[in-house]
Design a protein around this nucleic acid. Sequence first.
DNA 1: GGACATTGTTACTCAATGGTAACCGGCGAG
DNA 2: CTCGCCGGTTACCATTGAGTAACAATGTCC
Lengths: 190, 190
Amino acid sequence: MSRLPATARREQILDVALDVFASSGFHGASMNDIAEAAGVTKPVLYQHFDSKRDLYKALLDEVGHRLLDSIAKATAEATDGKSQTHLGFRAYFRWVAVDNAGFRLLFGSGTSNDDEFTVSVAKITASAAEATAPLIAADISESSRHTLAHALVGMAEGASRRLVELGDDFDPDQIADEVSTLAWAGLRAL
Amino acid sequence: MSRLPATARREQILDVALDVFASSGFHGASMNDIAEAAGVTKPVLYQHFDSKRDLYKALLDEVGHRLLDSIAKATAEATDGKSQTHLGFRAYFRWVAVDNAGFRLLFGSGTSNDDEFTVSVAKITASAAEATAPLIAADISESSRHTLAHALVGMAEGASRRLVELGDDFDPDQIADEVSTLAWAGLRAL
DNA sequence: GGACATTGTTACTCAATGGTAACCGGCGAG
DNA sequence: CTCGCCGGTTACCATTGAGTAACAATGTCC
């Protein structure tokens, strides 16, 4: 019906597809569903994306970058570990609160068991862990340090998953305070 | 070919299906795949399970109980919070090491976005969090306490996911030591 | 005002796969 | 021996959904 310039249509499709995929998962959402939600027909999707996988992957990457960027920006200013931890978690939970569908897409267990997709998500959490690892000053093996870093990232994910499942609104800054207190105390103890 | 008594066949199917589902995810694995892996044909599966969903659900429940039982047994003896924490994590990581496919089934993001399945898994992590919540003695709202409990459960999941993705063997007791140290220190700080 | 490009639609193909109806064969009981 | 139960197979149906070919409409530039 209403025609849109190519780039705008592409953006809109990404927007809409994010919601649909986040709600129904990769397999639960059909290309027809997405097209309909965008007020358009299937072939239009294929004018902008080679395949369903391609569209999904584009979303994973975009959303992942949004998350990592906001964390990076937030922690850039901080100098000491404690405020890095605090600001990092705050950025994470703020992102969850704002980009709710994004969180469900990445961590809501709708991502199929596809190797390529799993790897994409793994890279994102690995990046977050990479940034966390230096905060662990303990005298342990590099491997253990990374495992613990993943544990800390898992804290944010675990807390967020529950908050998102509850569906209620929540105050990201308050959650961040509590979780980062817990995390930082743990870090100092090692 | 080789005939088996019904109960034995049922067990074998569950066994085989766990591996197949864990590797390929719910949608990635076809009933034919599972049948073939069990050395049998499709209709046999339907003699023991009403549907693919039914089979998958049976697995989720069984594996979930295996996890929760081992944690419950391990922590039952402990009296103080610190050793409860420690033993709980140890049971978790030992379970991951032993029941590797089970971990991938529950937490490996192959569980589709199906409501029923998601709820099943959510119930399991919620149970674990339920057991963790009393360890948090801080003066915070009940809701915050539960969110933090989920954060702690997320620690175990996050660390495990990395370990499983790496593929190498790992010493569950050593990981448990490190993670529980981190967690317990955090708990005391609240 | 007509030609070209861009955007979009209708209507289809084709493969995968969940699920089923009908049939087979061996083994134990009477 | 044969009858019937039990575990198993072959061969099929029906649906769903990704992806495409061919066609229509909407500008916009000279």
